[in-house]
Protein backbone atom coordinates (compact mmCIF):
# COMPACT_ATOMS: atom_id res chain seq x y z
CA UNK A 1 0.00 0.00 0.00
CA UNK A 2 2.84 2.31 0.97
CA UNK A 3 4.63 1.54 -2.30
CA UNK A 4 1.48 2.23 -4.25
CA UNK A 5 1.07 5.61 -2.54
CA UNK A 6 4.64 6.55 -3.26
CA UNK A 7 4.26 5.52 -6.88
CA UNK A 8 1.08 7.59 -7.17
CA UNK A 9 2.76 10.62 -5.62
CA UNK A 10 5.70 10.16 -7.95
CA UNK A 11 3.41 9.98 -10.98
CA UNK A 12 1.45 13.06 -9.97
CA UNK A 13 4.71 14.90 -9.31
CA UNK A 14 6.01 13.93 -12.74
CA UNK A 15 2.78 15.10 -14.33
CA UNK A 16 3.05 18.50 -12.68
CA UNK A 17 6.73 18.71 -13.49
CA UNK A 18 6.08 18.01 -17.16
CA UNK A 19 3.26 20.58 -17.18
CA UNK A 20 5.60 23.12 -15.64
CA UNK A 21 8.27 22.33 -18.21
CA UNK A 22 5.79 22.60 -21.07
CA UNK A 23 4.70 26.11 -20.09
CA UNK A 24 6.39 28.85 -22.06
CA UNK A 25 7.72 31.82 -20.19
CA UNK A 26 5.58 34.79 -21.14
CA UNK A 27 6.12 38.49 -20.58
CA UNK A 28 3.49 40.71 -18.98
CA UNK A 29 1.06 41.56 -21.78
CA UNK A 30 1.90 45.20 -22.38
CA UNK A 31 5.67 44.78 -22.56
CA UNK A 32 7.82 44.79 -25.65
CA UNK A 33 10.31 42.09 -26.62
CA UNK A 34 10.44 38.37 -25.93
CA UNK A 35 11.04 36.49 -22.69
CA UNK A 36 13.92 34.29 -23.85
CA UNK A 37 15.74 36.13 -26.60
CA UNK A 38 18.57 33.60 -26.69
CA UNK A 39 16.34 30.90 -28.12
CA UNK A 40 14.45 32.72 -30.88
CA UNK A 41 15.04 32.19 -34.60
CA UNK A 42 17.53 34.62 -36.12
CA UNK A 43 14.85 35.53 -38.63
CA UNK A 44 12.67 36.92 -35.81
CA UNK A 45 15.70 38.67 -34.31
CA UNK A 46 16.34 40.34 -37.69
CA UNK A 47 12.75 41.59 -37.83
CA UNK A 48 12.94 42.92 -34.28
CA UNK A 49 16.13 44.79 -35.19
CA UNK A 50 14.32 46.84 -37.82
CA UNK A 51 11.98 48.54 -35.34
CA UNK A 52 13.96 48.15 -32.11
CA UNK A 53 17.63 48.13 -33.08
CA UNK A 54 19.28 49.16 -29.84
CA UNK A 55 16.93 47.37 -27.46
CA UNK A 56 17.13 44.10 -29.39
CA UNK A 57 20.92 44.23 -29.42
CA UNK A 58 21.09 45.01 -25.69
CA UNK A 59 18.60 42.29 -24.84
CA UNK A 60 20.68 39.58 -26.55
CA UNK A 61 23.91 40.96 -25.11
CA UNK A 62 22.43 40.71 -21.60
CA UNK A 63 21.37 37.12 -22.35
CA UNK A 64 24.87 36.41 -23.64
CA UNK A 65 26.42 37.79 -20.45
CA UNK A 66 24.53 35.19 -18.39
CA UNK A 67 25.32 32.43 -20.88
CA UNK A 68 29.06 33.13 -20.85
CA UNK A 69 29.15 33.29 -17.06
CA UNK A 70 27.38 29.94 -16.82
CA UNK A 71 29.87 28.39 -19.25
CA UNK A 72 33.12 30.03 -18.22
CA UNK A 73 32.46 31.65 -14.83
CA UNK A 74 33.66 34.88 -16.37
CA UNK A 75 31.55 37.98 -16.81
CA UNK A 76 31.25 39.77 -20.12
CA UNK A 77 33.56 42.50 -18.80
CA UNK A 78 36.21 39.92 -17.95
CA UNK A 79 35.94 38.22 -21.34
CA UNK A 80 36.10 41.56 -23.14
CA UNK A 81 39.04 42.74 -21.03
CA UNK A 82 40.91 39.53 -21.87
CA UNK A 83 40.09 39.81 -25.56
CA UNK A 84 41.05 43.48 -25.66
CA UNK A 85 44.69 42.73 -24.87
CA UNK A 86 45.22 41.12 -28.24
CA UNK A 87 43.27 43.30 -30.65
CA UNK A 88 40.74 46.02 -31.37
CA UNK A 89 38.57 46.97 -28.38
CA UNK A 90 35.17 45.35 -28.02
CA UNK A 91 32.54 48.00 -27.39
CA UNK A 92 28.74 47.68 -27.43
CA UNK A 93 28.62 48.34 -31.16
CA UNK A 94 31.22 45.76 -32.11
CA UNK A 95 29.88 43.07 -29.77
CA UNK A 96 26.32 43.42 -30.98
CA UNK A 97 27.35 43.87 -34.61
CA UNK A 98 28.59 40.30 -34.33
CA UNK A 99 25.04 39.16 -33.46
CA UNK A 100 23.40 41.15 -36.23
CA UNK A 101 25.90 40.04 -38.85
CA UNK A 102 25.65 36.43 -37.77
CA UNK A 103 21.86 36.46 -37.85
CA UNK A 104 21.73 38.31 -41.16
CA UNK A 105 23.93 35.61 -42.67
CA UNK A 106 22.14 32.73 -40.91
CA UNK A 107 18.43 33.55 -40.63
CA UNK A 108 17.56 29.88 -40.10
CA UNK A 109 19.85 29.63 -37.02
CA UNK A 110 18.81 30.57 -33.49
CA UNK A 111 20.18 33.52 -31.58
CA UNK A 112 22.12 31.28 -29.18
CA UNK A 113 24.28 30.28 -32.15
CA UNK A 114 25.19 33.95 -32.58
CA UNK A 115 26.03 34.17 -28.88
CA UNK A 116 28.21 31.04 -29.07
CA UNK A 117 29.93 32.41 -32.15
CA UNK A 118 30.76 35.67 -30.37
CA UNK A 119 31.97 33.78 -27.29
CA UNK A 120 34.30 31.68 -29.44
CA UNK A 121 35.70 34.79 -31.05
CA UNK A 122 36.27 36.53 -27.72
CA UNK A 123 38.01 33.47 -26.31
CA UNK A 124 40.12 32.94 -29.41
CA UNK A 125 41.15 36.58 -29.40
CA UNK A 126 42.11 36.38 -25.74
CA UNK A 127 44.26 33.29 -26.19
Amino acid sequence: MKNCSLALIAMVSMLFTSVALAERLELPKGMGGVADIGTIPCDVFNQMLVVGPQGTRLSLLTWADGYYYARTEKTMDELVAAAKQSGESWDFERLTDHFTEFCAANPEAITRDAVVSLGNELISEAS
Binding site: M31, G32, V34, P41, V44, M48, V51, G55, L58, S59
Partner: peptide
Protein backbone atom coordinates in the same frame (compact mmCIF):
# COMPACT_ATOMS: atom_id res chain seq x y z
CA UNK B 1 15.88 54.52 -24.94
CA UNK B 2 16.52 51.19 -26.69
CA UNK B 3 12.96 49.95 -26.44
CA UNK B 4 11.79 46.70 -27.97
CA UNK B 5 8.72 46.29 -30.17
CA UNK B 6 5.67 44.55 -28.73
CA UNK B 7 5.41 41.01 -30.04
CA UNK B 8 2.29 39.27 -31.26
CA UNK B 9 1.07 35.88 -32.45
CA UNK B 10 0.38 32.57 -30.72
CA UNK B 11 4.07 31.95 -30.06
CA UNK B 12 4.83 35.61 -29.32
CA UNK B 13 7.39 35.72 -32.09
Amino acid sequence: WGMLPRMDGADGL
